[in-house]
Simulated assay, not measured.
Amino acid sequence: MVFWFPLLSWLAAIVAAVLVLLRGPRPITFGAVVDQLLRYILLFPVGVMGLWAFLGHVFFAEQAAASIGWAPSPFQFEVGMANLGIGLAGVIGAFLRSPGFRAAVGVVAFGFLGGAGVGHLVQIAETGNMAAGNAGPILYTDFINPLAVLGLLLLQRLTRRAPAA
């Protein structure tokens, strides 16, 4: 599941955003696309994935460690708690339209997930650890999820400031 969950969360985000856009007002604007993508990326790849990682590291620590190619560690509880915070913030950010709150979620996710992604790369380089939880889709989403949030927030800001044509 550690291989598929990141991919499914992105699929859910894109499908949900498209469905909301198709059912919404016409014409579909660039700003509306950015808004919906941001909402559903916060909800699924950031929020639900964070909650999923929390559950894995806290309640299924042995399986989570094995999927990463590591031995179980007491530090998994701390990683799980960090994931809980990010997951809850992502879910809240999906419904709370505050750009400041959403930016804070993106920055915290970038710090934690980006750092985890760098850790995965180090493990690959130093030990050849190609386990699904280390070198699979989770590696990419550690970077893509927070960058997508921050990038969409920037696009949203630029779109709202752009003069009407």
Score class of each variant (00 low, 15 high):
1 M>I: 14
2 V>P: 07
3 F>C: 02
6 P>S: 00
6 P>L: 14
7 L>Q: 09
7 L>A: 13
10 W>M: 12
11 L>G: 08
15 V>Q: 02
20 V>P: 00
20 V>E: 08
21 L>I: 10
23 R>Q: 09
24 G>T: 03
25 P>D: 01
27 P>V: 11
28 I>C: 07
33 V>G: 02
33 V>N: 06
34 V>L: 13
34 V>S: 04
35 D>P: 01
36 Q>L: 08
36 Q>H: 05
36 Q>Y: 10
37 L>R: 08
37 L>S: 09
38 L>V: 07
39 R>P: 01
39 R>A: 15
40 Y>D: 00
43 L>M: 10
43 L>W: 11
44 F>L: 09
44 F>W: 13
47 G>W: 12
48 V>K: 07
48 V>M: 14
50 G>R: 02
51 L>Q: 09
56 G>Q: 04
57 H>V: 05
57 H>P: 03
58 V>M: 11
58 V>D: 07
62 E>M: 02
64 A>K: 00
64 A>W: 11
66 A>W: 09
67 S>R: 10
68 I>P: 00
69 G>C: 15
69 G>M: 13
69 G>S: 05
71 A>P: 01
71 A>R: 03
72 P>F: 05
72 P>L: 13
73 S>V: 08
74 P>Y: 10
76 Q>V: 07
77 F>P: 00
80 G>F: 12
80 G>H: 06
82 A>M: 15
82 A>R: 06
83 N>T: 00
84 L>I: 14
84 L>P: 06
85 G>L: 08
86 I>C: 10
93 G>Q: 02
93 G>W: 14
93 G>Y: 08
99 P>D: 03
103 A>Y: 05
104 A>Q: 01
105 V>I: 11
105 V>T: 07
107 V>A: 10
108 V>H: 02
110 F>W: 11
113 L>G: 05
114 G>P: 00
114 G>R: 03
116 A>E: 12
118 V>E: 01
118 V>A: 13
118 V>G: 04
118 V>P: 02
120 H>S: 06
121 L>R: 06
122 V>Y: 13
123 Q>L: 09
124 I>E: 02
127 T>K: 04
127 T>D: 05
128 G>S: 01
128 G>V: 12
129 N>V: 15
130 M>C: 00
131 A>C: 13
137 P>A: 15
138 I>Y: 12
138 I>L: 12
139 L>P: 02
140 Y>D: 01
141 T>P: 00
142 D>A: 04
152 L>I: 08
154 L>R: 15
155 L>C: 10
156 Q>A: 14
158 L>W: 12
161 R>E: 10
162 A>T: 05
162 A>S: 12
162 A>Q: 14
164 A>F: 13
164 A>T: 10
164 A>Q: 07
165 A>E: 15
165 A>D: 07
